[in-house]
Amino acid sequence: MHEPKRSREPDAPRAPCSRRPSVDLTGRVLGGRYELLRRLGHGGSGATIYEAEHVELRRRVAVKVLDPGLSDADTVARFTHEAHAAAALRSEHIIDIIELAHDDSELVFMVMECLEGEDLAVTLAQDGPLDWRRVLSIGTQVCEALVTAHARGVVHCDIKPGNCFRITHGGTADFIKVLDFGVSSFGGRVAVTRGSDGRRTSGPVIGTPGYMPQEQLRGGPYDHRVDIFALGVLMFRLLTDKMPYSGGSLFVPRRPTSGPIALRRAAPAVEIPDAFEAVILKSVASDPAERYPSAAEMLAALRAVADTPWAPRLARDPLAWGERSSAA
């Protein structure tokens, strides 16, 4: 893994926000087993990711260490939750969590497989917008990860380019691993607390503006369809380098019934099968009832697009549109 490049909104997380660690732990040996070789980047929940090596097995791993200056009870609980959520899932498209442990110095850390590649935010910045065939393959893989997560009752809540890592594997350079379950929920349950007046209040809004549907932004009850929405936004952005809703990076349409921007309006030059555009627009519907009811059904729709022969649209004939040809 390498240090991911963080882009401006709409990819920056809303909450919890990342903070730089108070100390660089490079060179430390955690738990007597993992030597931290170099700092790779910063994750959610006030954590830092290091490339490390098991001192006996000489196996390279990635170690995510919770900053000792941020180890309050809530942050530790969220960090532990991330490890448990990801470790409970078995999918080739979800990063493998090897161990969750505490160091003698009270450092809390999780050990993960070490990935060589880049996240999709970097890919988009360097190569975007991407060809629809690449986006279809990437979206299908992310959807496969969501099918696995949702089957176990885990809702990721923060699908975005920065949390989808691209590696070379199985003969493709676009093999995707979904990362960072730090803000995931089980069954989409929203934490409920009581204010000083005794009234029930929703928990903090967590996720990334632009990739969150209205029900998630409002902090109200939501379910697995927030991930379906986010995946649709992800594919829309990879194809166009734009967001499907106007009004800045935040998904706050002026009218609750307003729909997404047509993909071909956002990027008229983009070549994409009608069926693929229909899948994306259905997944980013404002009303969750209009989205795919499950990741499995969305996955079937994506695979159907891949299985359907497609030919690019013919170039417009200037004479047919009453235009003067260049030879005239």
Rank of each mutant, 00 (worst) to 15 (best):
F186E: 08
R194D: 00
T208F: 08
H156Y: 10
F181C: 08
T201K: 15
Q214P: 01
P204E: 04
G162S: 10
A173C: 09
F181E: 08
V154A: 06
G188C: 05
Q214E: 12
V155M: 00
A151D: 14
S202L: 05
G162Q: 10
V183D: 12
I176T: 01
S196I: 11
I167V: 15
S202A: 14
S196F: 14
V205W: 10
R194P: 00
G210Q: 07
H150E: 06
V154P: 02
P209A: 13
V178W: 00
V192A: 08
C157L: 00
A149T: 00
C164P: 02
R152C: 09
Y211Q: 01
M212T: 13
D158L: 03
V190H: 01
T168F: 12
S184I: 00
G182K: 06
T172K: 03
Y211V: 04
G207L: 09
I159H: 03
G153L: 08
G171T: 00
H150M: 08
V205I: 13
V155P: 00
D158S: 09
L179G: 02
P213F: 08
V192E: 12
K177Y: 03
G182C: 06
M212C: 11
G170E: 13
L146M: 14
V155R: 01
I159A: 10
A191H: 12
G187H: 01
T201S: 11
G171S: 07
H150W: 00
G203D: 08
D197A: 13
V205N: 06
F186C: 10
T148A: 13
P209M: 10
E215P: 03
T201F: 08
I206D: 09
N163H: 04
T168Y: 12
D180R: 10
R200A: 15
H169T: 06
F186K: 10
D174A: 09
D174F: 05
N163G: 11
R152N: 09
E215N: 14
E215K: 03
P209L: 15
A151C: 07
K177G: 02
I206F: 04
P161S: 09
C164E: 11
R166S: 10
R199T: 15
L179F: 13
H169V: 05
H150Y: 07
V183R: 02
T168N: 07
T168L: 07
T172D: 14
V155F: 09
K177F: 04
M212I: 14
Y211P: 08
F186Y: 11
P213I: 07
V155S: 00
Q214F: 09
I206W: 04
F186S: 11
F175V: 02
V190I: 12
S196Y: 14
